[in-house]
């Protein structure tokens, strides 16, 4: 069933009679078992939108349905909603507080009122899922490396068994190795747990090869909502929004301009190389 967003708007009131419209009539659906990239530059409204999805912020207009029910309806259990729509904030390592990693990951399940045994089981499963074995369980979260802290924090949300997992710029501030590790981990989680993942980012290069749907936000509006290759066809428009298509697309576009009949709808280096090799013909085969 998933989430259904019906014509929502949101206006921030910032003090001296200044109003900022952060979201402007957004409608979309976030179905089950889907990998979605939510892209937009700073201030485009993407962080506001994700905080709507688990009920942390209430839209000033419109409604949000989760599995068919209005999340701001009378008597709706929003605490349970937050377990089902998990949200991992930017720099999530800043939320760690317990004495050891395992207890920190158990914080979410405990808030759900589960038995101690069940909390422990979920926490250790989640930690294994993010690649943190038993040797980490009793460590202080403050002694972990940057990448490990972030994985522990993700496990903390995972332990609530969300149906939809939203990650707000999970690779911010990480080095290329940390970034690849986290992104690899997320796509593995997607495959194993068959949940919906919403990956918030401002880098097309990061999300392009993982996601099967891209939502682009600009000035509080949802501009595109389509499969990656369709969205990247608008790379000129993306640039006016301070975004860009993956670098490899620009390379292929340029080669095509120069007269090489290459395929411009590629998303990674491997398929780009395939396409170039194909149009080089026998001339390209150094060995022949």
């Amino acid at each position: 069933m998933g989430l259904k967003i019906e014509d929502i708007s949101f206006t921030y009131e910032t003090g001296t009679a200044m109003q900022v419209r952060a979201l402007n009539h957004i409608s979309c659906e976030i179905p089950d078992d889907r990998f979605i990239g939510l892209i937009g530059h700073t201030g485009s409204g993407k962080s506001t939108l994700v905080q709507m999805l688990n009920g942390l912020l209430k839209p000033t207009q419109g409604r949000i349905l989760f599995n068919g029910e209005d999340i701001h309806g009378d008597g709706y259990d929003r605490k349970n909603l937050r377990a089902k729509v998990g949200l991992v904030f930017q720099y999530p390592e800043h939320q760690l507080f317990e004495a050891d990693v395992l207890s920190d990951v158990m914080f979410g399940p405990r808030n759900l009122g589960l038995s101690e045994e069940e909390c422990r089981k979920r926490a250790s499963e989640s930690l294994f899922m993010v690649g943190m074995g038993e040797r980490f369980f009793k460590k202080s979260p403050f002694d972990l490396s940057g990448g490990e802290k972030r994985r522990a924090a993700i496990a903390g949300v995972l332990a609530m068994h969300p149906q939809i997992l939203i990650l707000d710029e999970p690779t911010a501030g990480l080095d290329p190795r940390g970034r690849d590790e986290i992104l690899g981990l997320i796509s593995e989680m997607k495959k194993k747990l068959r949940m919906t993942i919403v990956l918030v980012s401002h880098s097309m290069d990061d999300v392009a090869r993982y996601v099967d749907q891209i939502m682009v936000m600009n000035n509080g509006k949802l501009v595109y909502n389509d499969v990656p290759s369709e969205v990247f066809r608008h790379h000129k428009e993306l640039e006016t929004m301070g975004l860009s298509a993956p670098q490899v697309i620009y390379i292929m576009e340029y080669l095509k301009e120069r007269g090489l009949p290459v395929n411009t709808e590629v998303l990674d280096i491997q398929s780009a190389a395939d396409s170039i090799m194909a149009c080089m013909g026998p001339a390209g085969r150094g060995r022949s």
Partner: peptide, 20 residues
């Protein structure tokens, strides 16, 4: 575990496949 520009990476991949 460091990145290189996509063009360099593509060129390297093409060389690996035997392109001169």
């Amino acid at each position: 575990h460091l990145d290189v520009p996509q063009v360099s990476l593509l060129a390297w991949e093409l060389r690996r496949r035997g392109l001169k």
